[in-house]
Nucleic acid binder design. Sequence first.
DNA 1: CTGTTAGCGCTTTCAA
DNA 2: TTGAAAGCGCTAACAG
Lengths: 343, 343
Amino acid sequence: MARRRPSSKREATSPPPRLREVAIESGVDISTASRILNNDPAQSARPETRERVLEVARRLQYKPNAAALALRTTKTNALSILIPSLANVAYAEITEGARLRAEKEGYVLFVVSGTSEERLTTLSGRIDGVLLAASATDVGLSPEVGTSIPTLLLNRRVEGPLNSIIINDAAGIDMLVAHLAELGHRHIGHIAGPSNTDTGPRRVDAFKNGLRQRGLPVRTQWISAGEYSEEGGYEATMRVLDAAKRPTALVASTVTTAIGALAALRDKNVAVPDEMSVATYDDVPLASFVTPPLTAVQMPLREMGARAVEMLLELIAGREVSNEVLDGTPKLMKRSSTAPPAQ
Amino acid sequence: MARRRPSSKREATSPPPRLREVAIESGVDISTASRILNNDPAQSARPETRERVLEVARRLQYKPNAAALALRTTKTNALSILIPSLANVAYAEITEGARLRAEKEGYVLFVVSGTSEERLTTLSGRIDGVLLAASATDVGLSPEVGTSIPTLLLNRRVEGPLNSIIINDAAGIDMLVAHLAELGHRHIGHIAGPSNTDTGPRRVDAFKNGLRQRGLPVRTQWISAGEYSEEGGYEATMRVLDAAKRPTALVASTVTTAIGALAALRDKNVAVPDEMSVATYDDVPLASFVTPPLTAVQMPLREMGARAVEMLLELIAGREVSNEVLDGTPKLMKRSSTAPPAQ
DNA sequence: CTGTTAGCGCTTTCAA
DNA sequence: TTGAAAGCGCTAACAG
């Protein structure tokens, strides 16, 4: 149903209607119009006055001026989420969950990439609160962070007063290890994220625990960290493959690193899953389309986004929140990148 | 260099300093302080007064209140880019280019996903201009779009008064066709984007032209459209493979669809590149890590983002701009997904 | 039930 | 070189 705009020249940007216009046009005072439009519960207006104002506002397409509103009420009805890079698909999911929740509450969600925390200061006055998504932990949060604006750390914990929400990475990683162990693997390696992230070491710990709990050997040579990128995964995997003895299975900390791992295995002529199984944390559509399709755990990313917004809104309302570890159960998607080890 | 915040409770959000505080503290009038802080060229201040004000402002960490500024000046120093989905990596690049340019000009760039144009109205008063990235062309832009706020269409053209910037898709597609033709392919198919996008049909046209110019046959059965997703690419490719006669090479309209194509070829036991070459429009790191690594054209995505911001700024300044087709030369990345056709 | 008034924090004439 | 005053568009006491 291709609707076409008329190709006639659109009239020059005309100034949007002000509340004052609406008031005059309806023959009431501006304050009355304001009350009616805002459904002020404390006051009542005569139905007919009410109708008239509402009608005029609709006809004029009145929209309150955001700047004036913000100045007057010190509320912007906007939130923002700071993420290190838009290229990270996991954040796309988280953000989508957050956006939906925010909109339901009448907020716009602005995503800002590049996460240098200086950006935070430029945000002040434009938004009511900010979700600070994980970035390098060795950068440090300046003490001002969270001072000027309600802030919630996302996917990252830091000692101090800042509240946070993280996902239960351990559950996901453990599910992966369990799956591989069940298949009969006893020699499992881990392609980890960088040690200067919050998630990287957390997943490493979970991985080690998973092994120990099942009486499997923990070999540091089989745990190799790299950037959260294909390249990072590739290099980390290469290092594992150079070990004197190779594991028979790998747990990747991210789909991106898993794809790097697959490339490394291909270059080293190691067949997946015949000679090496690969399972990955996080599931995105891409995971099921690479060759071989990747066994993955699907984490409740959207839920995390949604929950983060809820918590942030609490913070904005001045209420206390406690740090949360989101505990939706991960879902294991078994695909052909994992199989029993070769004899 | 792990800086640690003291774990002491951070003092309760204290109200940020106002201009008035700065003025009082420096013993000048608020208007004087304003002029000095803004470097008002029309006025001169005594160096010592100047110093004093500047020093106090620094010490107090004075930041003008964004809402007040916006109300007073009707400028927000914020731009926004509306994109259909954050999961699209191409937009990550475009956005990065735009962000850098915007910041250089003193603007914040907010990305907003979900592109229903209604969102535009909620943006008014919060930003000075908006980059409207491609979405389905059959949705139609309501006549109000661009009326209340300077707007530039990105990667999409539409008849009417709205300005636009697009990339020279044709050049990229043609480069791909040229490469395949050079390898000796005479039977080339195209995994296209949806027909209700601006880019989809544009690339199809470029593809057909490329074939014709080289005297190669254009077979509609070999041109198959699907969503811009792995799944879409997969299905479209399946349709081509069901044709009575198969091509020997495929041009994919996007890395995502190319990956879907690779999966389809694998499932149909068609070896790449031995039995089928695959080349794709757009290059992202992922392209070189899949198996086999994808031959791709790298388009000047960041440049497009940057240029788009420049144009938008012109629009905001009230100047006219003409529609642009960004013409940075694409770069062909030859990788192992393409090879001469089998005899 | 509705109007008057003050003021959010800032810039910008206009005077001094 | 600086201060006084007005006002951006809106909401929220406070009167009436």
